[in-house]
């Protein structure tokens, strides 16, 4: 039974479409990254799953129950920047949330504060907290009632590298206990070391759902780039162009060519047949960031 299900989840604000028919399932205990540029629809999707906004169409289900509903009592969230009462201490903010939820023993507050390494600062008023401390306090609050599902919206926002690493470690520890985690980010590098599966969203549409490494392979399915070297550079270029391919010279003896995967296997054979002595044929392996940018931008160029 999946922990999170989105079925044709859509949200419109007037004419603007924030989320357009997103459908996915996340199994129990999975740690999934929710990736997309700013304004892609990540936060709106998480809000719908957290029961904060109503979908215009479709439905969200958490722990096999429709949301909003009682299943949300077993969900911890941190949507956008975590919010607190600034006049209360960090500990009192957690006490307030614990009372609101009910059934949270006081010792659990100490446990989560210790877990996010805020135990020493817990008696300071939140207005004196740094951005990083607020993020960690938000994570502590989302863990208060030992949730089965965690929905985290850019939990590393505004953190320095050390803070990001700490949050990453915390999330790994939480996932290791069997908690289902859906964590969003607009920066791939922040979550690529954390998750195995990616949901990518752009302009409200889910554009990718699958394993992290398959993201690269899937994009390779559209076009493959080869770096070729031959004993005669101009002849290599001429042969490639004669085959109807757009080739770019790389040095005196080399060329770069991008072609459909179906044509790739026979490329070297066809070049040899054209009388070119191919010394090297190296397939370009796209890095994850490049693949992601190509996915959301179409052309691979950063925005």
């Amino acid at each position: 039974m999946p922990a999170i299900v989105a079925r044709n989840l859509s949200k419109r604000y007037g004419r603007a479409v924030a989320v357009d028919g997103a459908s996915f399932e996340i199994g129990r205990g999975e740690l999934v990254g929710f990736l997309g540029p700013n304004g892609a629809g990540k936060t709106t999707t998480l809000r719908m799953l957290a029961g904060l906004i109503r979908p215009t169409a479709g439905e969200g289900r958490v722990l096999d129950q429709r949301v909003p509903g009682p299943a949300l009592r077993r969900v911890g969230t941190m949507i956008e920047e975590p919010s607190f009462y600034p006049y209360m201490t960090g500990r009192d903010n957690l006490r307030y949330a614990a009372r609101l939820h009910g059934g949270v023993p006081d010792r659990r507050i100490d446990e989560v504060l210790d877990f996010v390494k805020l135990d020493r600062a817990s008696d300071k008023r939140v207005r004196a907290y740094s951005q990083g401390m607020r993020q960690r306090l938000g994570l502590a609050r989302s863990l208060l009632w030992s949730p089965d599902v965690l929905l985290l919206d850019e939990p590393t926002n505004g953190l320095d590298p050390v803070g990001i690493a700490e949050i990453r470690e915390n999330l790994r520890a939480v996932a290791a206990e069997g908690v289902t985690v859906l964590v969003s980010s607009h920066i791939l590098a922040e979550i690529e070391k954390l998750v195995d599966r990616i949901l990518a969203i752009d302009h409200g549409k889910l554009v990718y759902d699958g394993p992290l490494d398959a993201l690269v392979h899937r994009l390779d399915a559209d076009a493959i780039t080869y770096h070729l070297r031959a004993d005669d550079g101009p002849a290599l270029l001429a042969a490639l162009r004669a085959l109807g391919l757009e080739a770019v010279a790389e040095g005196e003896l080399g060329a770069r060519v991008t072609l459909p995967p179906a044509d790739a296997d026979a490329l070297v054979v066809r070049l040899v047949g054209a009388g070119v002595t191919v010394l090297e044929a190296r397939r370009q392996v796209d890095d994850l960031e490049g693949a992601y940018l190509r996915l959301v931008r179409g052309d691979g160029r950063p925005s």
Partner: peptide
């Protein structure tokens, strides 16, 4: 009122989903 100004509704309604 403060729930809106401190953006606390999102916290409250997840801590206690029964509106």
């Amino acid at each position: 009122g403060e729930e809106r100004s401190h953006r606390m509704w999102k916290t409250i309604l997840v801590s206690q989903p029964s509106r």
